[in-house]
Design a protein around this nucleic acid. Structure first.
Lengths: 149, 149
DNA sequence: CTACCTGCAAACTATTTGCAAATGT
DNA sequence: ACATTTGCAAATAGTTTGCAGGTAG
């Protein structure tokens, strides 16, 4: 479904207003990199001649999370990053270059359901973060090691 | 292996000093709840008549993470919590009462290794967080629903 | 004796909030 | 009309850092 439509419906249902700023934030967010921080999103908006304040970006992203269009992640850092929700997937995070590789895994989904059930938990959501070094950075590291030697 | 011994060896190897404060922090940390925030650990130390400052607790926990005795987690909150490292395990987090249930799962470990390998990643560590409602809170919620009705 | 450590206070950073003016329905 | 929204500036909260005096090796 069209995200603008979904957002608009959500706002109406909550008695909230669909403002120019909220439309601009969603549009920029939806077209930006898959993972953006508030700072990055503000920069993107500025480059689009939008004058939306950073406070509004924070508040709008919170709304987008509420209506299920966005997901917030912390990974390792102190800044939160937001990603648009399309389907569920997990993350492989390179600790060297901070590249994020997404992946989905059917078997894992089933496993996780079974585990939660066995502990009497009703699952709401989950995050699987695999931290490691990606192939590109491994190549760089080994050539660096040669130089040092 | 004895954690105090491991810590002592680690410090010596790094040319750092084993101070009274560092010994106290490790001891309190090792005996405290499985998951503690800095604030909780300081409170625990105070109740033991220790006068260690909170800055030192932050710095010592960082050292404990470096030498592999502690792990830092953020879960959903803004505060970091630290847990002592014994063996690897995952976390089920109750979003209602914030209870944390730990579990280990052999099959999952293998799966995760296979996934990382298939994307050319060399795995360093990973976190699987399952968020949901525990059985106790589900019971409370349903009785609450009856009252409202 | 020398480099490391402590703890206070101040700095820092990401995020949140109060409020007066502006805006959507 | 009227509640909601905006954006600035100020507050907040967790964590980090500078520094002067103290301590381990």
């Amino acid at each position: 479904m069209d995200p603008q439509q979904l957002f608009s419906d959500f706002l109406q249902h909550q008695g909230l207003h669909l403002t120019t700023q909220r439309r601009e934030v969603l549009e920029a967010f939806w077209q930006a990199d898959h993972h953006v921080s508030v700072e990055q999103l503000v920069a993107e908006l500025r480059s689009r001649q939008s004058t939306v304040g950073q406070t509004t970006v924070y508040r709008t992203l919170k709304l987008l999370v509420e209506c299920g269009l966005a997901e917030e992640h912390n990974f390792d850092a102190t800044v939160s990053v937001f990603e648009r929700v399309t389907g569920h997937h997990e993350h492989l995070i390179c600790t060297a270059c901070h590249h994020i590789q997404e992946f989905a895994h059917e078997e894992l989904e089933l496993l996780k359901e079974a585990i939660a059930r066995s502990y009497g938990f009703t699952l709401q959501r989950h995050t699987l973060h695999l931290y490691g070094v990606c192939s590109g950075c491994q190549a760089k590291e080994s050539s660096l090691a040669l130089q040092v030697v």
